[in-house]
Design a binder for these strands. Structure first.
Lengths: 212, 212
DNA sequence: CTAATTCCTGACCATTTGGTCAAATTAACG
DNA sequence: CGTTAATTTGACCAAATGGTCAGGAATTAG
């Protein structure tokens, strides 16, 4: 019987193995070439199996893509979940920002995958964006608003603040090629992201106007 | 004779007209679907001409793409050029940031076109990034460094500051779909970008830590 | 007006690519 | 071991797509 990822019937050893291999390979390829730019053959080759065999596990190219997206999305949203309303605002936002930057460093493919999907109109994950992502952001915006009302943060729009954190950190994954063109090999050295983190947090917390 | 864009021979009236029509249509399509995701037919249809006729003006799909990229690149880099070393640092950076944000509002396709190209490894414009873009950024980094040494700005890495400005502003073009999923129609109202600008400049200049 | 040149099109081609299928091979299980 | 079910593959197909070309239509030059 032709298996389908996510079906009810229990999966065999080989199914689990090959599905994992496929998804891992697909993440890389999709992140680099986008949905249309990716061919099934490319994924199959990277996953070390024949195209028909790959299609035995995922009937359509779109099925692989959606699986990869959903799988990555969860990891990607986790950090925001952990923004603690009871914690110190500056510390919480600092942790969140630094965690997002770390993710851009360690798993840039995930970031690029989303960037691609969203650039192209998010045809496959619009419902997730309007669903769980919106809920999560709405919830955290309230938390930030309270911090502001308590005088613990400068008065800024919580949503735009969140967007700006996303922008500043994900930029280091999505636009790394541009940065490398400007700064050269430096961007691949270990202290590059450290310097990025320092700059980002200085600006976010201190601002550019020198404090007396 | 088969015309080639950018040739030495003077171009006829019809050539100028049709090349413009093609490039305008192509910008839109390429920005939405990326290079591989775009078909010549799509561009031809949007430019209201037949595919063979389009190929009469641009021999290959790649030629159109490169033309569009080069054409847009110039506009895109201009604002940074105008960062005045003699001006007031806060004011200059404020003007630059606000100009970039305006461009994201008025011409998001241009931003998306680059984002796409860079995400996919910038195969067509790597030399521009390493050439004129790098020179320009290097030059302006020196200016910013001087401002910092003069105590007029908080001490941050000039390059990362520039990256952060790009990130924060271009995000409003590249990720608008995500923003719309979260905030709804609001993102299309005129005061949305105004609020974005206020948030961005408050964070850049004041920082999140409340000033006494 | 006439000839040369430019512009445009329908028909066509080769390649790529997503996807199918029957049959062969391998693993699982009693 | 032998039977059943799962896995794998080569061969194949149809559609999409980048690109060509011979010749007809329109434009321009003289």
């Amino acid at each position: 019987m032709n298996p389908r990822a996510g079906q009810t019937k229990k999966r065999t050893r080989i199914q689990a193995l090959n599905e994992a291999k496929i998804l891992e390979a697909a993440l890389d390829i999709f992140a680099t070439f986008g949905f249309r730019g990716t061919t099934i053959d490319q994924i199959a080759q990277k996953a070390e199996m024949s195209k028909p065999n790959l299609l035995y596990y995922f009937r359509r190219k779109e099925d692989i893509y959606i699986s990869v997206l959903e799988r990555t999305l969860e990891t990607w949203l986790t950090p925001l979940t952990e923004l603690d309303p009871e914690g110190d605002p500056i510390e919480e936002i600092g942790k969140y920002t630094s965690l997002k930057l770390q993710m851009s460093e360690n798993d840039p493919t995930a970031s690029r995958l989303f960037a691609n999907e969203i650039l192209h109109g998010a045809p496959m994950i619009e419902h997730v964006l309007k669903g769980s992502l919106k809920s999560l952001v709405d919830e955290k915006a309230v938390v930030i608003k309270r911090w502001i009302d308590d005088g613990k943060l400068t008065n800024v729009d919580p949503y735009h603040l969140i967007f700006m954190i996303w922008a500043s950190t994900q930029h280091y994954a999505d636009f790394k090629i541009q940065m490398r063109a400007i700064l050269g090999e430096e961007v691949d050295k270990p202290d590059y992201f450290e310097k990025a983190g320092k700059t980002i947090s200085t600006i976010f917390f201190e601002g550019l106007k020198p404090r007396a």
